[in-house]
């Protein structure tokens, strides 16, 4: 009898943990919103929401690609450097018009992603090592192309950075569009299913005849392209190209957003909605602490606490 009740209690606790893991991030966002509504002056203004959303957009876009990489039991550390590379390329090619500059920048990100993917899929290098190599090389290349900060004076870029449709900034629209696209790809395409399968069990995927290499290469190519888009958008918003500092530590923010959003590092699962919420959660957390005049170091500690909580909630799944 005791055994039986015990079993039921653990089952209940398991369910609770699973709920927390799946929806905890939304709960966190809700709590932070309520706290801010109650205690932060001028929080409930359209202007404030716009600022927050614009700030979170590049992080979110990078996190989308990161979620795909993590879904294959990998990681992409080169995203920050790809942003830097993108900002250098944009600056260099703006003479040919903003569209050309944007295309060149995204192509640059794709090339870095393809290099990552090829190292991982064909050479068999661990994702963390391969993308670390490209992280170093990418930033180096960015600085060779554009050794120092350069102001961007281009009406097109300025419009991209600060324009809006019906009060919604372009940046936010683009981020939302890419999030929807990624969610669609994960849920509805062959590629998405294959990605999840090989993330969950590489040997089984191989024996089932899945194009493991192709999927891996595409995943890292997508991550590179997303990071490049984020780099272009960040450049447009700041109206400056700064390859020295743009995107530094971006890989950590992106990984945090993905993990806090409930995507397990062990692969086989990609939660795009959770990733969006994860990015928003971290943005809100930072904003809250800053608004209440706490030093920036507190933000980092708070982020650390959130990560630990997320990993704790995901613990059981890893053990299975």
């Amino acid at each position: 009898m005791t055994q039986l009740t015990l079993g039921r209690v653990t089952a209940d606790r398991d369910r609770l943990r699973r709920l927390l893991q799946d929806y905890g991030v939304y709960l966190g966002v809700a709590v932070l919103l309520l706290v801010n509504v109650a205690f932060t002056p001028h929080f409930l203004s359209a202007e404030n929401f716009r600022t927050q959303a614009v700030q979170v957009a590049p992080v979110l876009i990078v996190a989308l690609g990161m979620a795909l990489a993590i879904g294959t039991e990998g990681v992409d550390l080169s995203v920050g450097s790809v942003m830097a590379l993108a900002t250098s390329l944009v600056s260099l090619y703006l003479g040919y018009g903003p569209w050309i500059a944007l295309l060149v920048a995204v192509a640059g990100g794709l090339v870095v992603g393809l290099a990552n993917g090829s190292l991982i899929a064909f050479v068999g290098v661990q994702p963390i090592v391969a993308t670390l190599a490209l992280m170093v090389a990418g930033r180096g290349l960015a600085l060779v192309l554009l050794p120092q900060l350069k102001q961007v004076h281009d009406p097109g870029m300025a419009a991209l950075g600060s324009g809006a449709v019906l009060g919604v900034p372009y940046l936010v629209l683009i981020a939302a569009g890419l999030a929807l696209l990624t969610a669609f790809v994960v849920r509805r395409t062959t590629f998405g299913r294959q990605l999840l399968a090989l993330g969950d069990s590489r040997p089984a995927a191989r024996l089932a005849g899945l194009p493991v290499r192709r999927v891996l290469i595409l995943v890292y190519a997508a991550s590179g392209a997303f990071a490049a888009v984020a780099g272009v958008l960040a450049t447009a918003r700041l109206t400056a190209s700064d390859p020295t500092s743009l995107g530094t530590l971006m890989e950590l923010s992106a990984i945090t957003a993905v993990v806090v959003g409930g995507t397990p590092l062990s692969g086989g699962r990609v939660r795009i909605g959770g990733t969006v919420a994860g990015a928003v959660l971290i943005q809100l957390l930072t904003a809250t602490l800053i608004k209440h005049d706490l030093p920036p170091s507190w933000t980092q500690i708070a982020q650390a606490v959130v990560i630990v909580l997320a990993v704790y909630a995901a613990r059981e799944r890893g053990k299975r």
Binding site: R193, L196, S201, P203, A204, A205, L207, G268, R269
Partner: peptide, 19 residues
Amino acid sequence: AEGIVPGLSVRENIALAAL
């Protein structure tokens, strides 16, 4: 280890190779 993809559903596992 080499057959099933444990985290995916019955449905996705059956459809995997024929996707």
